[in-house]
Amino acid sequence: MRTLSAENVVEYLRETGRLPADAAATVTPLAWGVSNIVLRIEPAGHRPLVVKQAQPQLRTRQEWFSRCERIYREADALRAWQTLLPPQAVPEVVFEDRPRYILGLEAIRSDHVVWKQRLLEGRLDHLVAHTLGQRMAAIHRGSWRRPDLLPGAEDWSVFEELRIDPFYRQLTRVYPELHRPIQEVIDDMAAHRLCLVHADFSPKNVLVHPQGITLVDFETAHYGDPAFDLGFFLSHLLLKSLLHPAQRRDWRALVDEFLEEYEGGMPAEYATGIWRRAVRHLAACLWARIDGKSPVEYLTAPPLREFVRRVARDWLSAPPASVHKAVAEFLSRQI
């Protein structure tokens, strides 16, 4: 397989007829995650695009592999999400080169900001949280009992490779005593296949720009339990809050804004049981980002890491009654 790079991607686009033979272009590597090569191409006289190529081995310290065919799922998921969300909420698919595991996407404005960076700086935008609560609810509500919206959505192979194994099962390899509670979380998730799930709904995949907010990175999308999206996303917010202890009230308000919009967008009969399961996913995801295969890079202080382990262990054995209570407890505990 030809591996794309900043040095050869323009040549590839010319050879495949996607750029004129004499077209000049600037190329910028993008830091989207650890699993793909992602390049922004700005050709003179043509609209910019992003070219993404799946790689079999992820860029992590521990060995981590996933099938390159996941790029097919991403293309299908983008088309599915476009039927569920407002215009420009996700990038358009420009082209697919399936034999080479390459996807061409509409480029988001170059003046976008990755929301993760703002959160790490302690810059809390409540409108972003508000919008994301609405978007997640729209995805879950609009695809409820509709696996047909995404081809192959009930195949969890990539979800297993990129989430269940490196996050949840890895915890049981490091801490064998967690096998039973973690397996219960996995089994409960498998028993509640209810709607389309992004499974990488993370601040690093939220691009904020003057025209709004765009979600990216859909290769883990599947038909599953919406509680996973909630737990996964909230774990990112709570972990980043540890960097800004003086802003605890502001972080609480940010999370509450997201939860209020999500709850308001989900019919009551759909939400039954989601919150109980979401707390356990929150616990497992918090711990996995400390001791899983993809630990967060910004929590290096041993006291903070041990605090996360302690909270997660408590919640896996005796979860709080609701996500709201879990968030309040996390942000009020002494480290």
Results as ranks from 00 to 15, higher is better:
Glu219Phe: 01
Pro303Gln: 06
Thr272Asn: 12
Val279Asn: 11
Asp225Phe: 09
Phe228Trp: 11
Thr220Arg: 06
His244Val: 02
Arg252Ile: 11
Ser241Pro: 00
Ala284Ser: 12
Val206Pro: 06
Ser294Arg: 11
Gly265Cys: 07
Gln211Leu: 13
Pro203His: 09
Thr214Ala: 01
Pro302His: 11
Arg277Tyr: 05
Met266Ala: 10
Ala227Trp: 06
Leu243His: 11
Pro226Cys: 03
Val255Gly: 05
Glu257Gln: 15
Gly292Cys: 06
Cys285Asp: 07
Leu259Lys: 03
Leu234Met: 08
Arg280Leu: 06
Leu259Asp: 03
Val208Leu: 08
Glu269Ala: 15
Ala246His: 14
Leu234Ile: 11
Ile274Phe: 14
Glu269Pro: 12
Ser235Val: 04
Gln247Met: 10
Trp287Thr: 04
Thr272Gly: 13
Pro245Met: 08
Trp275Ser: 12
Trp251Val: 06
Ala271Glu: 09
Pro203Gly: 01
Ala271Pro: 07
Glu306Asp: 09
Ala253Pro: 10
Val308Met: 00
Glu257Phe: 08
Asp250Ile: 14
Ala221Asn: 13
Phe232Val: 05
Leu230Ile: 12
Leu282Phe: 07
Phe307Cys: 12
Thr220Lys: 05
Glu306Gln: 15
Ala253Ile: 12
Thr220Phe: 07
Gly264Met: 04
Val208Cys: 13
Ala301Asp: 14
Glu269Val: 15
Leu230Lys: 04
Leu304Ile: 08
Arg276Val: 15
His209Lys: 03
Leu239Cys: 04
Ile213Ala: 03
Ala221His: 13
Lys204His: 07
Tyr262Val: 00
Trp251Met: 02
Pro303Glu: 08
Ser241Ile: 02
Ala227Val: 01
His209Cys: 04
Arg280Gly: 03
His209Asn: 11
Ile290His: 12
Thr272Asp: 11
Gly265Thr: 08
Lys240Tyr: 07
Thr300Asp: 08
His236Pro: 00
Leu234Ser: 07
Ile213Thr: 11
Glu297Ser: 02
Tyr298Phe: 13
Ala301His: 14
Val308Arg: 00
Ser235His: 11
Leu230Pro: 03
Leu234Gln: 09
Glu261Gln: 15
Ala271His: 12
Ala268Met: 12
Phe307Pro: 05
Thr272Leu: 15
Phe228Thr: 06
Val308Leu: 00
Phe233Pro: 04
His281Pro: 01
Gly273Val: 03
Ala268Thr: 11
Thr300Trp: 11
Asp291Cys: 10
Gly292Asp: 01
Leu237Ala: 13
Val206Tyr: 05
Ala268Lys: 14
Leu238Met: 02
Val308Glu: 00
Glu263Lys: 15
Arg305Tyr: 10
His281Lys: 03
Trp251Thr: 03
Lys293Arg: 15
Ile274Pro: 05
Glu297Asp: 12
Leu259Phe: 07
Leu286Gly: 02
Leu215Gln: 05
Thr214Ile: 00
Leu243Asn: 04
Phe307Ser: 13
Lys204Gln: 10
